[in-house]
Design a protein around this nucleic acid. Structure first.
Lengths: 185, 185
DNA sequence: ACAGCCATGTAACTCGTTACATGATTAC
DNA sequence: GTAATCATGTAACGAGTTACATGGCTGT
């Protein structure tokens, strides 16, 4: 029964539980706007191969639209898929988050660089962070009006708020580190 | 010249820049106490295979201790290794952090679980977080006395402080989310 | 004596990436 | 007419994991 799938498969399957039928291309876009912030933004090719595996396993249903020229294939989650996803949520032991943070890694090796380089590193990260915050804010705004208890985007909105607070805190930390570097020389 | 290595190779190489000679086993322990918090804690087997690659490339020097019975091999970074690492730090474009956060992923799918299950999820994460904070605090304490500007563990200490602030902020966010779930029902 | 840690590796596997290949539709 | 976007895949590859295999040393 439980031939186990990677988390990313369940993540993509989960993105199909919001009531619509998506093409692989559209699913990739949704993943970029949601999963990308706290899981991964899978490559286009992986989205397609995951979808075909999920289809092979009967966890999604596919419908071909071949109305003129370009042929598209839309996927929706199946009853079996919903069942498997719920079972996964209930049974799967909770893992601790994994962070891959190139900036922290490079700061660790600060003794190999000159101070100016280290400052530039943090500064560049601060800017990237600002851009990322703007992106997430746009996502958060797009959920307004359907984000209350009982509404469809309640939980996505909670996750987005979480992300915004996380980014805000990271921004503060980076500024503190920069100050510390300047003061201590 | 630049046959490029994965970041993890440079990370492990970087752990050898703190002035000592380590066995694979010891390097794995150091990785668990440092890299594990903001990069990855590579499997034992990977530590050995990375070391043998670094050795093959001349980036680390190895010395065999075969004094009676158990044979051990200690590695230290070579001059060439230090050069390559510095070059990597200087040239490598800065990537944005990647977070793999199972709790956020599952909260996103809150509409598939009952409220009690979601609360339990956050609660369990809060506890795991508390344990992880204690671990990092122990690491941080072990650096005291050599963590000022100009001292060997200045940067590791900065990274540890960063991590502690990050965890503290995550802890606060989780508590806010739990309150919000209770209030809104 | 036995458990737990120290110590080193090999083999099989899979996840996920990049590069490649193809072509339709839309906007300017 | 041409660039960007929509749309779907295949192939080769590498990073990193788990499982397996071996054995010495240390504390109780």
């Amino acid at each position: 029964m439980s031939q186990d799938l990677p988390v990313t498969s369940y993540a993509l399957l989960g993105l199909l539980t919001f009531g619509d039928e998506l093409t692989g291309y559209e699913l990739k876009q949704r993943a970029d706007r949601t999963l990308g912030f706290y899981w991964v933004a899978p490559a286009m090719s992986q989205v397609y191969s995951e979808l075909s595996r999920l289809h092979r396993l009967g966890l999604v249903d596919a419908s071909d639209d071949r109305t003129e020229g370009r042929s598209t294939r839309r996927y929706q989650i199946s009853a079996e898929g919903r069942k498997r996803l719920r079972a996964w949520l209930a049974d799967q032991p909770l893992e601790f988050p994994v962070l891959k943070h190139p900036v922290a890694l490079r700061l660790l090796l600060g003794h190999l660089a000159d101070p100016e380089q280290t400052r530039a590193l943090l500064d560049e990260h601060r800017e990237a962070l600002t851009r990322r915050i703007a992106d997430l804010q746009a996502v958060r705004e797009s959920l307004r009006g359907r984000d209350e208890a009982g509404q469809p985007f309640r939980y996505p909105a909670m996750v987005a708020d979480w992300g915004l607070e996380y980014f805000a805190s990271e921004h503060t930390i980076i500024e503190k580190l920069l100050t510390r570097l300047e003061e201590e020389g």
